[in-house]
Design a protein around this nucleic acid. Sequence first.
DNA 1: CATCTGGACGGTACCCAGTACCATGCCAGG
DNA 2: CCTGGCATGGTACTGGGTACCGTCCAGATG
Lengths: 221, 221
Amino acid sequence: MAQRPARERLIEAAFALFEERGYEQTTVDDIAERAGVGRTTFFRAFRSKEEVIFPDHDAVMQAVSARLAGSTQQTALLAVTDAVRLVLRHYLSEGELALARYRLTRSVTALRDREIASTQQYHRAFYNFIHDWLGGGSDTALKAELMAAAVVTAHNHVLRRWLRRQTDRPEAEFDAAMSWTVNLFNEREPDRDEAALVVFRTTKDLDTVIPALRGLLGNPG
Amino acid sequence: MAQRPARERLIEAAFALFEERGYEQTTVDDIAERAGVGRTTFFRAFRSKEEVIFPDHDAVMQAVSARLAGSTQQTALLAVTDAVRLVLRHYLSEGELALARYRLTRSVTALRDREIASTQQYHRAFYNFIHDWLGGGSDTALKAELMAAAVVTAHNHVLRRWLRRQTDRPEAEFDAAMSWTVNLFNEREPDRDEAALVVFRTTKDLDTVIPALRGLLGNPG
DNA sequence: CATCTGGACGGTACCCAGTACCATGCCAGG
DNA sequence: CCTGGCATGGTACTGGGTACCGTCCAGATG
């Protein structure tokens, strides 16, 4: 019988067993046995038991890096949005697999932590890219970190809504969320020769506002 | 000889051994032996080998929650800033211990992941608080997530600068960074009966701007 | 066809984190 | 003196992860 690759069989077996008896109650031996391979083969295909839950992470991460690398100074923000969209679309294309993973990460602390650590890799990639885009100076490091955190957060927000079945138009929500999010950072430091529209309102008195003004006018850190 | 609590001796022993031979090369037996206690006692004091690196996390987390809980609708943003400042000050007060932890988390993946997962707990706490503060509606969920991510990111940024010895005035930088960060979210949705100042500039053409406008005017998600 | 070779695979043995359980010893309060 | 918690320590076990080795198969070469 012509078998599909061991890696795929292992993923199937793992998700099935995790669903049936739970994550901790399933041993790597169980997974290997159901997939019809040896235990050694499991650890050749995946670095750890946790990794079998996120089998495509490395590939998606690489696609993100590639999308960012193939952009110019002028299209940087578009590249970021596109790259984040790549991640969202990957989850959407997984369908039921993504939902199964979501169930697992909700209930198993080790898997949730693992997922958060994965997310951080996206944050790093976006930070490096955005920071370079902003010139790489220490005065733009905070802004770059905030932008990276914001786009990742916006993605996670929309993805989570889809995983919870709170929306059936995730990509439309993603577009809106991303434009709103990116826009947060757009309205300061205007290009001097362009049209401009500025809003600032406050209910605070002068003393309360002064620290914020200092943050705005001075080096934000 | 009147011994200090086993927990403290274990922390000391662990950091010393990790520094001497590295994290993976140190077993829990080694730590327990140097601390002069049994292996069982180690796992009574800490849930895992990793946890000994972040011994005060639970306490700091609780302090943060307490600071947030003791605030009113009017002082919510102040409470958030104060709560984040609590975390920063805790690290600063640790001194050399925080630097040793930083060295470890830079070089040991498992510890870095663990630290990121801890950070996520702060994010959650701030998100819940801010979301409540904004009314708890689904239309403010994204904004609350972004604000929570932003304040945590700003904190991490300043903390990391201090850990890398790039600043010797971390708290001043923190104040500036926080006011700049919080201010990102302040300039939309103005109270209608207050003074207002609005800025918007762009170098883009109309088609490029339309998605952003939709995000601004419609429901951001 | 015989031989060589490299890579995938399986099995075995080992290390160590984490858990469960039990025995001991100490220190109250009766 | 006894006794009932309670912290501690020891022992044994499970299971993830690593190292190593032998085997098998495919394709290249003579």
